[in-house]
């Protein structure tokens, strides 16, 4: 049995819970129920040479960095940083949360998700900005919990990264 603890990190209502549900249960719902505290899910990912159980800790989104409960991240081996592509400010939130986690527990593998890619007409992040982040060697995905696009790819990539 190989397991890895993964934390979903990002601002308020960016779609962390929706992404987990899409990935674990293949469903999506329009209704928004904010996460309180933490929600835990599990999904087995079959990799070429082994199978890993991802234990997904879906943390409550905090736009206010001060109230982020960093202690939930202890022992995690990877992060899913989630940004709401229709709200540019959530990028800064995700990056700050990552810094906060790294300061506490050191660097760890992560994937950066620009979510809600189905809302093209309200998209608020420029391609230039995304490319610039890719230049840093970051793994970036434009996901949609609604359509499921790129969701599996992103989690699978992180599974590879944390089992290397």
């Amino acid at each position: 049995m190989l397991q890895k603890k993964i934390c979903m990190v990002g601002g308020f209502a960016v779609g962390k819970t929706s992404l987990v549900r899409r990935f674990v249960q293949s469903i999506f719902s329009e209704t928004y129920l904010t996460t309180v505290g933490v929600k835990i899910d599990k999904k087995s990912v079959a990799l070429p040479d082994k199978t890993v159980d991802l234990i997904l800790w879906d943390l409550a989104g905090e736009d206010d960095i001060g109230s982020f409960r960093v202690s939930y991240v202890r022992g995690a081996t990877g992060l899913v940083l989630v940004v709401d592509g229709t709200r540019a400010a959530t990028l800064a939130v995700a990056l700050t949360l990552r810094e906060r986690v790294e300061a506490e527990f050191g660097a760890m593998p992560f994937v950066l998700l620009f979510n809600k890619s189905d809302l093209a007409d309200r998209w608020a992040i420029s391609d230039g900005e995304i490319n610039e982040l890719r230049q840093r060697g970051w793994q970036i995905y434009l996901t949609s919990a609604l359509s499921g696009e790129q969701v599996d790819d992103a989690f699978r990539q992180l599974a590879l990264m944390v089992t290397k």
Partner: peptide
């Protein structure tokens, strides 16, 4: 139920209480 999930939830509760 799934013991892996239970295990994580228990430690989340512990984290929460500790905090």
């Amino acid at each position: 139920e799934d013991p892996q999930l239970i295990s994580s939830m228990l430690s989340a509760i512990q984290d929460f209480v500790k905090d």
